[in-house]
Every structure is written in C-alpha cells, then in structure tokens.
C-alpha cells in the first residue's frame, strides 16, 4: 500500500557499487587507525606503568592526558564514520553532540571539584 503522508527519507540512502568501494576503503582505513591507537595505548601502559612512575608524577599526568586525547580521537572516528553522523545534516549533528558535550563538561567540572575538596578534608 502506498502512503503519501509518510516521507521515507531512508529510501534515498542508496549508493552505487563505485560509491560503495570508496566507502569501504574509508572503513578499512578507520579500522586500521582504531586498532593502532588501541595498541599504542596498551603499549604505553606496559612501558610506563602508573606504579613505576608514581600516581602523582608529572609523567603519569601527561600519559593520562595522552590517553584521554587518544580516546576522544577514537570516539570521534566511531561517531563520525561508523555511525556516519559526519554525513548527516549539520543541524542533526549539532543537536546530538553539542548539548551532550556541554552537559558532560559541566558534570565533570562540578563532580571532580567536589571530589577533590572531599579528598582534601579526608586527607587532613
């Protein structure tokens, strides 16, 4: 049965064999990248473990930052390529990402500041 009140946007989500080849190539490149990042993360952990560096040392702090940056890179590739949010309209992309990111930054700020304050009291 044909319905004219429903606009099926997904019907347009088709592509040719040639486009498919390009998309598959991109998928494999991203796969290699994600695997390499994971190997690097584990390798860094094996070479410079936290307990050898000291949990409060500057070296461990920079490794932590390095991990967080790599995690965000991985997350970016998964969201934008695998979930192809990067190919959707900008309006959808920002509706999904911006409120979430703002809220999480706020939540982390408020919770971690509070956590450190409690730590300072318990430690004294």
């Amino acid at each position: 049965m044909e319905r004219d009140d429903v606009i099926e946007y997904s019907l347009d989500a088709h592509h040719s064999d040639e486009d498919g080849k390009k998309i598959r190539k991109k998928i494999w490149i991203v796969t290699a990248l994600l695997s390499i990042i994971t190997i690097v993360e584990v390798g860094v952990g094996v070479l410079w473990p936290r307990n050898a560096l000291g949990a409060d040392s500057g070296a461990w702090l920079s490794i932590k930052l390095f991990y967080i940056v790599l995690t965000l890179v991985k997350a970016g590739y998964i969201i934008l390529t695998f979930m192809h949010l990067g190919d959707e309209r900008k309006s959808l992309k920002y509706v999904i990402l911006v409120p979430y990111i703002i809220f999480m930054i706020y939540l982390m700020f408020i919770a971690f500041v509070e956590g450190s304050a409690i730590n300072a009291i318990w430690a004294s």
């Binding site: 982390m108 971690f112 509070e114 956590g115 409690i118 730590n119 318990w122």
Partner: peptide, 12 residues
C-alpha cells in the same frame, strides 16, 4: 563514569 571518577578523587 563521572561517578566513578568522583569516588576516585575523594579516595585518599
């Protein structure tokens, strides 16, 4: 995950 982080921050 933020709750986990917060508990870690408080732990001495």
């Amino acid at each position: 995950l933020v709750a986990y982080g917060t508990i870690r921050y408080t732990y001495t």
